[in-house]
Design a protein around this nucleic acid. Structure first.
Lengths: 195, 195
DNA sequence: TCCATTTCTTGTCATTTGCTAAGAAGACTT
DNA sequence: AAGTCTTCTTAGCAAATGACAAGAAATGGA
């Protein structure tokens, strides 16, 4: 396996104003690994101790409802940082499960290394705040969409924004993320074809 | 009207490790005002330019769904800071409306003064991060509760945690916040009485 | 290539929940 | 204290959506 941090460095630089040297320095703390499909990064009731950068592949977050069903709360498409940052920074147990949907390549950094780099690399201090804001914002948008948009509108929005997800993730998972049953999504897709 | 900043100072000190002197200094930037029932603090499509401390009274946040109905997204019970902090810090239009449910006493600080105090009072810098984390966490908990708990369980949780809300806010607003119709909440309450 | 597994669609059925409307109870005003 | 307005409950009805099951299609592994 070719270990190249280019993608990670480019991604960090797209988020933060930081020199290539500093970014490379940060990357020393990231360890690359490969995960098979269905691998768990984090399970509910555990405190998140690692932040993952997803270089390639797809990941979902889900929680178990009262009937034992898995409800998808997030779908991640590379390149992106994947974590329950509330669990990570508040040091509290998560309620979500994070699992790969395909074979994936990750880079991970431990909580201790994140803390150390906050002190060692001033530019990196913005990272935590940015991850919190980004994920909060995403959850907020999702809540608003659930209230304002029909399931069909949510489907079309996701289709336009992340076609790659539809090519790599089962519709059952996507339907759950959209807040509907897989059979209902099938009906929506059927109606859309008749237009 | 008696202008006493005691409640505000105490509340800030309960959030942040800060001396009484520094806290008092911060309070110079807060202006007290009284608002009647049904007063709007912030309307959708506007950028939030003020952060409000609710000294007494009750406030709701709501968004308009596609049928024109008001869907309650938050109920605030004093003492608490009230704002769409994503709109406030990202300088982007909000999707929510913030409206008083009772006569209220507020203290407000402008965005410019918040920025100025971030520089002038080092201890205050944690404030923004804390507000984001607190509100993010609250939204996350609410999402999880919507998936895991029945409406009855959500009702009982709120009842135990904020009895004051039930004594001051119409059940119609509370039902909407719980994610159900007011008539459904009535059914739940009826069933609970038969136990 | 073939078999097994997963995924997707489709139809039927049942249940839940919201909508509407009406009346009772309560709160506020004058 | 009377009257108005809001709030809350209740009942009947309608509609939307999920559960279940069966079959088709696609995928992946041996």
């Amino acid at each position: 396996m070719m270990i190249s941090q280019d993608i990670l460095i480019k991604y960090i630089q797209s988020l933060l104003p930081i020199s290539s040297e500093k970014a490379s320095q940060l990357c020393i703390s990231f360890n690359q690994f490969e995960a098979e499909k269905n691998h768990f990064l984090l399970k509910e009731n555990n405190v998140s101790n690692e932040t993952f950068f997803l270089e390639s592949g797809f990941v979902r977050a889900f929680i178990i409802d009262r009937d034992g069903n898995e409800v998808t709360t997030n779908i991640f498409s590379a390149p992106i940082f994947v974590n329950d940052f509330l669990s990570f920074f508040k040091r509290q147990p998560t309620s979500e499960n994070f699992q790969t949907l395909t074979k994936c390549i990750f880079w991970k950094m431990s909580f201790e290394d994140v803390q150390r780099n906050f002190h060692a690399v001033p530019e990196f201090r913005e990272f935590g705040r940015m991850m919190l804001v980004t994920n909060y914002s995403h959850l907020n948008d999702r809540m608003i969409s659930m209230i304002r948009d029909t399931a069909e509108a949510r489907y079309l929005k996701l289709l336009n924004k992340h076609l790659d997800i539809f090519q790599n993730v089962p519709l059952k998972i996507i339907a759950s993320y959209l807040g509907i049953a897989d059979t209902s999504l099938s009906r929506i897709r059927k109606e859309l074809i008749n237009k």
